[in-house]
């Protein structure tokens, strides 16, 4: 595929994403009148459902999907490991531990418009980022292997603490923790969209600026260094940019799984490994994918919503098998 074809493909993908963003807010058990589009501030039921529930929800899933997908692209390239996800380095388990502690201890507070759960998730995520970075630094240069192993070790440790806390807590708290762990966009509001946007925008900006470094780092460190890349600093920048972006997503939406591993692989199969094209493709694909999954999640059962994390996971399992069974020549 030539660069020209890839550019065309990106334009087509952008069209699909826009179409998806325009159509999905209309879908649901209640079909709003078409003229709500002119009444964003109105307080009739159609306008409230459309503008205060569905539009923020679609915007949030677009942002989160794009961010998770990009996180997967970067970590898979950076660690040269097809199984890496945005959560591999422990950001998700750190956030989950924070939320578990907040729910189980029953502390209620809010700060700067963020709820106690969100603050706990953010602190937990930042704690795990700092720990993984500290461990990698302590062993000298930021080697991918040390970072991966450190992240996995911290993930396991935090997960076991979460299990312990859940075991010791009452059924109500335990259920709330479980529900949070599934990942959920149903609490979306315009405020949460605005809270998440800066995390995503800064993450996307930094990663896009480093797409050439990412290409070379996905080969080997030696190769990147010999071409003139400041390996240590690039890896550090990419790690923090992605980790903070993912921390933001988890804080608002919970740890929605599988988008961050599926979307990058599918994009790589279609458009190739060149991050110049892979980055925009995965942003668009991830955004569309999560938005469609969430539309499914809120419509699949008429009794109650299914958390979107369950939908992405159900699609993710078979995908993993397919990934294992096919030839892995297109993996990073």
């Amino acid at each position: 595929m030539t660069d020209h074809t890839k550019s065309k493909l990106l334009v087509a993908l952008l069209g699909i994403t826009l179409l998806c963003a325009l159509v999905t807010p209309w879908l649901g058990h209640i079909l709003p009148q078409w003229d709500v589009i002119f009444r964003p501030g109105a307080d009739d039921i159609d306008a409230i459902i459309f503008w205060q529930i569905r539009v923020p929800r679609v915007l949030l899933s677009l942002l989160a999907g794009a961010g998770l997908s990009l996180g997967g692209v970067v970590f898979q390239a950076l660690f040269r490991n097809p199984l890496a996800t945005p959560f591999t380095l422990g950001v998700a388990s750190g956030a989950s531990l924070g939320v578990t502690i907040a729910i189980v201890s029953g502390i209620h507070f809010s700060l700067l418009g963020l709820s106690g759960t969100s603050l706990a998730a953010l602190s937990g995520a930042i704690l795990s980022i700092a720990l993984v970075y500290g461990i990698a630094r302590a062993s000298g240069k930021l080697s991918p292997t040390t970072m991966l192993l450190g992240g996995v070790a911290i993930s396991f440790f935090f997960s076991s603490l979460i299990l312990l806390l859940q075991y010791l807590s009452d059924a109500g708290s335990s259920f709330r923790v479980l529900h949070w762990l599934m990942g959920d966009i149903s609490r979306a509001s315009m405020d949460s969209v605005l809270q998440l946007a800066p995390f995503i925008i800064s993450g996307v900006l930094i990663v896009s600026l480093l797409h050439r470094e990412l290409n070379l780092l996905s080969i080997t460190d030696d190769m990147a260094a010999s071409r003139g890349v400041n390996v240590d600093r690039s890896r550090q920048l990419l790690f923090f940019a992605v980790s903070l972006m993912v921390a933001g997503i988890i804080t608002v939406c919970g740890p929605i799984g599988f988008v961050g591993i599926m979307a990058p692989h599918i994009c790589r199969l279609i458009i190739g490994s060149n991050h110049r094209f892979l980055i925009p493709a995965s942003l668009l694909f991830g955004a569309t994918f999560l938005t469609l999954c969430d539309t499914l999640a809120r419509n699949i059962s008429s009794a109650a919503e299914v958390p979107v994390g369950i939908i992405t996971a159900i699609l993710g399992g078979p995908f993993f098998l397919w990934l294992l069974l096919r030839k892995n020549r297109s993996l990073p």
């Binding site: 290409n215 070379l216 071409r227 190739g272 993996l331």
Partner: peptide
Amino acid sequence: SFTAMEFISMSRYAYGGGRGAG
């Protein structure tokens, strides 16, 4: 899985090369 052309143009990194429209 980079193509030969992609791989070769990446080695222009030190000269600011290898950038592109995308």
